[in-house]
Simulated assay, not measured.
Amino acid sequence: MSQEIFPVVQWFPGHMAKATRMITEHKKKVDVVIELLDARIPRSSANPVIRELVGDKPHVVILNKCDLANPKATKEWIEFFKNDGIHAIAIDSKNGKGNKQLVKTVESLAQPIIDRWLKKGIKGRTVRTMILGIPNVGKSTLINKLAGSAATRTANKPGHTRGQQWVKVGKNLELLDTPGVLWPKFEDQRAAARLAMTGAISDDVYDLDSVIKQLLAYLEEHEPTLLHERYKLTEEERTSVDTMLEAIGRRRGCLVSGGVVDYDKVRRVILTDYRNNKLGYITFDGVDEEPYYVDEE
């Protein structure tokens, strides 16, 4: 089955444009930049605007939510960034896995700066870092875990953190939380679909039918065993995404009067299954995968 890609969304709320300006303003105040990516979609969640804003600042990439991703793929991505000269660490911000390694890496990257301070007679200044990433990637959760308290507000909703907060971590590190920033235009609509699947984009603004069809097509092509085990689909039912949708709807009882499948309901069942990790540990972005562009009239 070929995976057909359709335009999914164009979304750039005004507060994100404001966030971009804020990041530019505060970049000069920080010593090290932490870029937080979703380990399931390392390429799709890497905002090119952020890379431009980072410039030549010491930079570490964090692959968050590694507990939801394919472990083998996560190792491949860490090696990919290493080969590109970028420090990369896999973490699970909810349980704190990888946080100690993160702090050590930040301190190591900041050491040349600290040495320059000492030569100038400056002692006791804390290392300042800024955490950047797309919405709902786990920035506030990470800061809370590092600080050991609910230092920042968190919500499982894109666009929640809109202000700016400095948080002290230990004796020598300060973190600046920033609002999630998406880029002005999704040229790669496959990436847009994956951002929607993982919850980086508000569920109110994208075409759910297109996203779910792309999810099913991906599973059929790359993870057919996971798809079959969850929904018990026959070979005949797997001939197209439409036949899969209908079969899953009937098995899950997503029906209206007359035995007609309620497609909106079954789409949401599948999305919930994926987000609750009932479809397995999936990494959508491969290190060798090429972007997929859709021309928009």
Score class of each variant (00 low, 15 high):
K145V: 00
K145Y: 02
L146Q: 03
A147I: 04
A147N: 05
A150N: 15
A150I: 10
A151L: 10
A151P: 02
T152P: 00
K157F: 11
G159Q: 09
G159W: 13
G159Y: 10
G159V: 10
H160M: 12
R162K: 15
K171W: 06
K171A: 06
N172S: 12
E174V: 11
L175H: 02
T178I: 11
G180D: 08
V181L: 15
P184F: 10
K185D: 04
F186C: 00
Q189S: 09
Q189I: 07
A191P: 00
A192N: 08
A193W: 13
R194D: 02
A196W: 11
D204Y: 10
V205T: 04
Y206K: 11
D209S: 11
S210Y: 11
I212G: 02
L215S: 01
L215W: 01
L216W: 00
L216Q: 00
A217I: 07
A217H: 04
A217P: 01
Y218G: 00
L219P: 08
E221Q: 14
E221R: 14
H222D: 09
H222G: 00
L227Q: 04
L227T: 03
H228M: 10
Y231I: 07
Y231R: 07
Y231T: 02
Y231M: 06
K232F: 11
K232W: 06
E235S: 09
T239K: 14
V241P: 02
V241F: 10
T243W: 07
T243H: 07
M244C: 05
L245H: 03
L245Q: 03
L245A: 03
L245K: 04
A247Y: 09
R250E: 11
C254E: 09
G258T: 01
G258A: 10
Y263R: 07
V266D: 03
V266M: 07
R268V: 05
V269A: 03
I270D: 06
T272L: 12
N276M: 14
K278A: 08
L279Y: 09
I282N: 04
T283H: 08
F284R: 07
